[in-house]
Simulated scan of single mutants.
Amino acid sequence: MRAEAHAYIHLDVTTHSWADFHRATGLSDKGIGEAVHHTDPGLAVQCPMLGQGVVLGWLLAIAAPLNEGKIIPAWDRYIETGCHYVLEYRSSNPSDAMRQVACWLIEKIKEEVERARSVLSAMNAVSKNMKS
């Protein structure tokens, strides 16, 4: 795919930029289309679903639309950042119900991410830590 022909969606609150992506993957940044900036992750992910450009997305953020075929990878490679999410209880003594909900949520997230990883399995992983 020629992602350069599309607008580059940039999430302003993220720590990684398109320049970081191009540097880590070795892909050219020549001929990049216009940049569209969003501060809302939901809006940024909706843009490619509406055909309005390409977005850098954390796997957890894009797993569902990727699994549903609403978005597709724009290149043949992706970045393994080593970053992860942490779910914490606000209480030092969470209830059994809170623990059950947390376990259920973690299990559902794992399932969604593993499904998305199978979509990415045909792609090349670049194991670099992207730093701004």
Rank of each mutant, 00 (worst) to 15 (best):
A24F: 01
H10K: 13
E34K: 15
Q100K: 01
A116C: 10
G31K: 10
V119M: 06
K108A: 10
Q100L: 01
A122N: 04
V54R: 14
T39G: 12
I79K: 02
D20M: 00
A24H: 06
Y78N: 13
P73Y: 02
K128N: 09
R99Y: 01
W104A: 03
V119Q: 09
A116P: 04
E111T: 10
K128M: 07
G51A: 09
G51T: 05
V55E: 01
K110M: 12
S127C: 09
A74C: 04
I109T: 10
P48K: 01
A19K: 15
I9H: 02
L43M: 14
S121V: 03
A44L: 14
I62Q: 06
V55W: 00
D76R: 04
H16I: 12
Y78H: 14
A61K: 07
M49K: 15
S127I: 00
N67M: 09
G31C: 07
Y8H: 12
G82K: 03
G53P: 03
I32K: 13
E80H: 13
L59N: 02
H6A: 07
L105P: 04
A125R: 05
L87Q: 11
A3E: 03
L11Y: 02
A97T: 04
A102N: 13
S17E: 07
S121G: 14
E107N: 12
A44Q: 08
M123E: 03
G57A: 15
C47W: 08
H37D: 04
K131W: 02
K108Q: 15
R115H: 15
L50D: 10
A61R: 02
D96S: 13
V113M: 11
P94H: 05
R77S: 13
E88H: 12
S92F: 03
V119E: 07
E88A: 14
K30N: 08
C47N: 09
R2E: 08
R90F: 01
A5S: 07
L120Q: 02
R2D: 14
T81L: 01
Q46N: 15
G57E: 00
M130P: 12
R115P: 06
I71Q: 04
S121H: 08
D76M: 05
A3M: 11
F21E: 09
D29M: 01
V86D: 15
V36E: 05
C83N: 12
G51W: 03
L120T: 01
N67Q: 07
R90L: 05
A63G: 04
D20T: 06
K70L: 15
Y89S: 13
A19L: 11
A122S: 15
R23Y: 08
I106N: 13
A35E: 15
I9T: 04
A61H: 04
E4A: 13
F21L: 08
H38T: 11
T81Q: 07
E111G: 06
E4T: 13
L120K: 06
N67G: 11
N93G: 11
T14M: 11
T25E: 02
F21N: 11
H22D: 04
S127Q: 05
A122Y: 00
S118D: 12
P41K: 08
V86W: 02
L59R: 00
Q46M: 10
W104D: 11
L60P: 09
L27C: 03
I32H: 11
Y8N: 06
G33K: 06
T14C: 10
S118E: 15
I106V: 14
V55H: 00
C103Y: 01
S91C: 06
R90I: 04
G42D: 01
L87N: 05
N124P: 03
I79A: 09
A24I: 12
